[in-house]
Amino acid sequence: MTRGRPIRVVRVVLVGLGAVLIAIGGGALVVGVPTRQWSGILLWLAGAVVLHDALFAPLVLIGSRVLRRVGARVSWLQVAVVQVALVVGAAVTLIAIPGIAAQARGARNPSVLVFPYALHLGVAWAAIGVLTAATVLVIALRRRRRETSPSVP
């Protein structure tokens, strides 16, 4: 390994640099944020990880195991299309939530929160559903045609 040494140097530099940057972040926190708010920050940092690791990720696991069972009976391509649709739908839902929540509390002025976010989210899911159903159907039809057409020797 001729390049082992330079890589080790790069790794040491990166870890050292990281420690310095984290220290700067700590300094910025001390200077900029009152100490009584630190517990709130800690709570949010820990809460975000728990929410993901103990709730979101297990739900995704259960969902994907269910889809796999279905996938064995239909086609994997169709399952893949449904999975992609669910991922896109989930992402759009995540970015729509702040709009819906903020709107429920009332906009600060008429030029902010300009859309009916809940309605738009519903429309987005409907559009994703229609597109997904159409794609799944097309895949099924093509498969059936291939299966019924006589194979060319």
Binding site: V13, L14, G18, L21, G25, G26, A28
Partner: peptide, 18 residues
């Protein structure tokens, strides 16, 4: 907070990459 956490984030990222 956004400013302070940004530094901590790129610092942790550098360590992770290292």
């Amino acid at each position: 907070t956004h400013f302070a956490l940004a530094w901590a984030l790129v610092g942790a990222l550098a360590i992770h990459v290292g």
